[in-house]
Design a protein around this nucleic acid. Sequence first.
DNA 1: AATGTTTTTATGTGCGTACATAATAACATG
DNA 2: CATGTTATTATGTACGCACATAAAAACATT
Lengths: 233, 233
Amino acid sequence: MNTPSFRNWQSVQDEVLRRIHAREWAPGDLIPNEADLAIEFGCARSTVNRALRSLAESGLLDRKRKVGTRVAAQPVAKATLDIAVIRHEVEEHGAKYGYQLIARDIAIPPLSVSGAMKTKADDKLLHVRALHLADDEAYAIEDRWINIRVVPDAEAEMFQSVSANEWLMKHAPYTHGEIAFSAAQASTGDAEIMGVAENSALFAIDRLTWDSAASVTKVRLLFTPGYQLRTGL
Amino acid sequence: MNTPSFRNWQSVQDEVLRRIHAREWAPGDLIPNEADLAIEFGCARSTVNRALRSLAESGLLDRKRKVGTRVAAQPVAKATLDIAVIRHEVEEHGAKYGYQLIARDIAIPPLSVSGAMKTKADDKLLHVRALHLADDEAYAIEDRWINIRVVPDAEAEMFQSVSANEWLMKHAPYTHGEIAFSAAQASTGDAEIMGVAENSALFAIDRLTWDSAASVTKVRLLFTPGYQLRTGL
DNA sequence: AATGTTTTTATGTGCGTACATAATAACATG
DNA sequence: CATGTTATTATGTACGCACATAAAAACATT
């Protein structure tokens, strides 16, 4: 067997993928070590390392020091979702973006919110509710609480024409966050705003972002029926 | 200012993150080039490269040859979801996993399925419907079509005790796939099987996987109300 | 047999150099 | 002036070496 010499990490990766896929290396199998592969492929070990590391990151390989590299038995499919600003999402679909502020006030949030955001139960937060439109039709309802202790500038912003969704992206950095996807039934009020049947199944995204130890904002986005969040595998 | 010498790529990354977060490098800003940063940090350029490349992969930096590296203006939040085998998902919640086959037959699928799977309209596919349980309660309904031309072994498998979800992971490799998340209303039949109210809002995952140019399987998973798919940011 | 210690081994990472490549800027040419 | 050509520059990556580190295996000790 001649070795056609794999000079770059991508081609090494492709060859590894081919072998996994052709079942030359079956799920659970231990594959040769980096040094041996480097010799076989006619490249440096670091090149093999780059290829395998990247495959491990995407969940296709399991690597352990001293033990070796094995093909993942249960290739946990890792789907990476790009959560963009809603305006961009709409415009990328080729639709005209629209925005309407529904309500804006500073109030003491329900305990579920102050609890999740770890603010004091009697701390006032900025509460913004808005509607995002695509081609003049309801696209998503945004219900957001903003920690004005962390983002004091938000108090001066009326969110009449710029959505909190977009404003915060620019003005409030965050260190980490949590995101959850679920399905929810449209409440009477939401159904009316969106112009859909009551109890429609809505796609919901709940996001909570943090700046170090302090919560920045908590938002729930409810999308009109038919909305799909898609990605490749 | 003394430079405390950043010896490994992680600490370089942390320092870069700190500067971005502290707005020393604001969104949209061009940051110093790798060579300069390497000098400043007292490490090799390759170490800086590793740190910046990784940040670019996670969407926080935009890099272009010759142009340089800039802090992403709209840090597109990339959420990576781990889509595991349902049994594992259930067991990780500390619940007892259960499985029930609802139906299994070989039939001509509706056009929506043969169209998406790019099989001939009169090609027969293996159709499996099953219920996944957690602590003896309905967890998710699986409705799956399998391309028996691509996975002939599936024809001999009855899926009485092993779910197609799990069996395919082991026996049918795929090269790529698409996944979509949405919300759906429970049909009368599904509601009855799951023991939930009709028209409940269910979380739906649709997945279509390919082996090169041939479709392997198309599946829709409907989760009982309350289900959440979560991850960090 | 149970426990602690040392060796071995495969991955993880750092370094410095070299060259490849994309995109821009500077320059030349009709 | 418009257009084509050539430098310049920052990232991208390959290479070979060195050493760090985790984990298992081999060995020694009680």
